[in-house]
């Protein structure tokens, strides 16, 4: 596997004194879906937030090690965190549309990037919504408040909003955990389609979901990366005892 998008070398994260991530080293392939699994509190979400430096927002966080994206260390002093986030989008666990219209939600990203032309914005809004497979449902009410959408629609809207800034990598933090099964399957289909164009990293506590959607799976436990490999391999013959225990539901 030559197409490695992200190289993580000995990445550790401290909340004050507490070491929350312990020397993580892994390689995340391009244009694949990588699932991060593990019991809650294992550090998988924290690790995800390291990839677009969302942890910068939390005071007292210290990060050591390297996070190389296409060979560039994003924690380098000379790297601009705002530009990083434009290239590495994120979809959150709880859908969080802005209290604005649907259109404004999608246009938010392009607008802050300086796109003012109305036709250009219209186009971006339409393509993003189409890519997120939600265009047909809401094309007639783009000016309605985004808060009026159902939970599943909101989450796909958030994905569309992320796509509108044309990122390269998309991070998803348990994007379907608060949704009903039908919405969940729509999100999963969407993930499947999106990997043609994007590198996707998805955190999930639902192992079926990881098995269904991902190409690679990494298992985290107590802040450590226990095992990473092809999803098939992880779920059928894990190398580590802890992984096996988790997958077979013996804890977590």
């Amino acid at each position: 596997m030559k197409d490695i998008k992200i190289h993580v070398n000995d990445l550790s994260l401290y909340y004050g004194e507490k070491k929350a991530l312990k020397e993580i080293s892994m390689q995340i392939p391009a244009n694949k879906v990588t699932a991060l699994i593990g019991p809650s509190g294992c550090g998988k979400s924290t690790f995800l937030r390291c990839i677009n430096r969302m942890n910068d927002l939390i005071p007292d966080v210290k990060i050591t090690g390297e996070m190389l994206v296409e060979g560039v260390d994003i924690y380098d002093k000379n790297v601009d965190v705002v530009n990083i986030r434009k290239k590495i989008g994120m979809v959150f666990q709880k859908s969080n549309p802005f209290p604005k219209s649907i259109y404004e939600n999608i246009a938010y990203g392009p607008k802050i990037n300086g796109i003012k032309n109305k036709t250009e914005l219209d186009e971006i809004v339409e393509t993003s919504l189409r890519k997120a497979a939600i265009w047909d449902e809401i094309k007639d009410r783009l000016d309605d408040s985004a808060l009026g959408l159902s939970g599943g629609q909101q989450q796909r809207l958030c994905i569309a909003r992320t796509l509108a800034v044309s990122p390269d990598i998309i991070l998803m933090d348990e994007p379907a955990s608060a949704l009903d099964p039908i919405s969940t399957s729509k999100i999963e289909e969407l993930v499947h389609e999106l990997k043609e164009q994007y590198t996707i990293i998805i955190v999930t506590h639902n192992m079926q979901q990881a098995a269904r959607t991902s190409d690679y799976t990494a298992f985290f436990y107590l802040g450590e990366l226990i095992e990473m490999g092809k999803t098939n391999a992880i779920f059928t013959k894990p190398e580590q005892k802890q992984t096996e225990d988790y997958i077979t539901g013996r804890f977590g």
Binding site: V82, R85, N96, Y108
Partner: peptide
Amino acid sequence: PRELREASLALGATKWQTIKNV
């Protein structure tokens, strides 16, 4: 909510843009 600030920042908005727009 923190989620809204994070949503804006994750889209590549700067701090001031987030404050101003969200």
